[in-house]
Simulated assay, not measured.
Amino acid sequence: MTQPMIELRGIHKRFGDLEVLRGVDLTIQTGEVVVLMGPSGSGKTTLVRCMNLLEEPDSGQLSVCDCAFDCGRSRDRAGRRLAQQARRRTGMVFQHFNLFPHMTALDNVIEGPRQVRQLPRAEATALGERLLARVGLSGKRDEYPSRLSGGQKQRVAIARALAMEPQAVLFDEPTSALDPELHAEVLEVIRELAGEGMTMVIVTHETHFAREIADRIVFMDGGVIVEEAAPEDFFTRPTQERARSFLRLVDHPGATAAAPLPRAGEEAV
């Protein structure tokens, strides 16, 4: 049987007195596109950040891109190298782009390959130019982030993630910081990656996009997974009331904004 690309077992994460993740089990298969959905504060962002150890879980077992960890244990030198290897194998695309403002689009894309992968500048530049062309930004290679639209910045961020040649890419609400008219250009790039078989985990509230692209919807609330289903099942016949309440909110926010969403336990992030 094929080893899962990402596997989490009993993942707990706490920030001070706030328990954010409360024993999460989740498996992501190679080539699968999994969309994480749920109300704000449900633990989605923390979970996706745990997948590449930007946040290290307090306890549980994590396997990512063939790197396995018992979380919460202090790491020796070999363990730290393994964690770095896991981060290199998982690209991360952030909600607010996180581009270096003093670097051009091209230099943002090639910084990782040059510093981490130790590629010569000429080789890294050729790679960066290919990736900018792939996301439709060949003409913006020498522009600084301040001269790019939000959608262009996010496409540069996607190219930067791909420059590390990851085995999986994690997206944390990649369109939530964009004006609505800029969503399409970013979502199209993600569609193309899905069509190429890239393993992806996407945190999003874009229900129509999620229904189109996902192999599986994972719905979270209160730091736990409440429901997992194929998109058609989740969006047409969710089994849990919290999922049904969430879908009413995102589909008809004006009609239901005054009604609070039922929560499972304390608020998470």
Results as ranks from 00 to 15, higher is better:
Glu232Pro: 02
Glu165Thr: 15
Ala105Val: 01
Ala86Leu: 00
Pro174Ser: 09
Pro253Asp: 10
Thr199Gly: 01
Asp215His: 11
Val189Tyr: 03
Leu106Ile: 00
Arg248Asn: 14
Asp251Ala: 02
Leu261Glu: 07
Gln118Glu: 13
Leu99Asp: 10
Leu131Thr: 04
Pro260Ile: 07
Phe219Val: 02
Leu187Trp: 13
Thr236Lys: 08
Thr236Ser: 15
Leu21Ser: 09
Pro180Cys: 11
Val156Tyr: 11
His205Trp: 03
Gly72Cys: 00
Phe100Ser: 11
His183Pro: 00
Glu232Phe: 01
Arg130Asn: 14
Cys50Ala: 05
Arg22Ala: 09
Ala86Asn: 00
Ala159His: 06
Met37Thr: 01
Leu8Gly: 03
Thr125Ile: 13
Leu187Ser: 08
Arg242Thr: 14
Gly112Val: 10
Phe246Leu: 10
Leu54Pro: 03
His102Ile: 07
Ala163Thr: 12
Val250Thr: 15
Ser176Gln: 07
Leu261Arg: 08
Phe235His: 13
Pro4Thr: 07
Ile6Ser: 01
Glu32His: 07
Asp17Ala: 13
Gly10Ile: 09
Arg141Phe: 12
Ala184Asn: 14
His208Ser: 15
Asp58Ala: 00
Cys65Ile: 04
Phe97Thr: 04
Ala255Gly: 04
Glu111Arg: 09
Phe100Pro: 05
Gly150Leu: 10
Pro180Glu: 14
Val34Thr: 08
Arg114Cys: 13
Asp25Gln: 01
Ala184Gln: 15
Ala264Gln: 15
Arg14Ile: 01
Asp25Val: 00
Gln29Ala: 13
Arg160Val: 06
Arg9Gly: 13
Glu267Arg: 15
His183Asn: 12
Glu129Asp: 15
His12Ala: 01
Val218His: 09
Val156Leu: 04
Val250Pro: 08
Leu47Arg: 08
Ala258Pro: 00
Ala68Glu: 15
Ser40Ala: 04
Ala264Met: 12
Asp58Pro: 00
Asn108Asp: 10
His183Ile: 14
Gly79Phe: 00
Glu227Met: 06
Asp179Ala: 10
Gly16Met: 02
His252Lys: 12
Phe171Trp: 13
Gln152Arg: 02
Thr90Met: 11
Ala243Glu: 12
Gln29Gly: 12
Phe94Cys: 07
Ile202Glu: 06
Glu196Thr: 05
Arg242Ile: 08
Arg211Asp: 14
Leu137Pro: 09
Lys44Thr: 02
Arg248Ile: 03
Tyr144Met: 10
Pro231Ile: 04
Gln167Gly: 15
Lys13Arg: 10
Thr27Leu: 00
Arg237Ser: 15
Gly23Met: 10
Arg141Thr: 14
Gly222Asn: 09
Phe219Trp: 06
Arg81Ser: 07
Leu249Phe: 14
Pro231Tyr: 07
Glu232Ala: 11
Lys44His: 04
Pro166Val: 09
Gln95Thr: 07
Arg87Tyr: 05
Thr204Ala: 03
Gly91Ala: 11
Gln240Leu: 05
Leu54Val: 01
Asp179Gln: 11
Asp179Phe: 06
Asp172Val: 04
Ala78Val: 13
Val189Trp: 05
Glu181Met: 06
Leu178Cys: 12
Gly43Ala: 08
Glu196Gly: 03
Leu36Pro: 02
Asp172Trp: 09
Ala126Leu: 13
His96Ile: 07
Val189Ile: 09
Arg155Tyr: 03
Gln240Ser: 12
Arg22Gln: 14
Ile225Asn: 02
Gly254Ala: 08
Asp76Ser: 03
Val64Met: 05
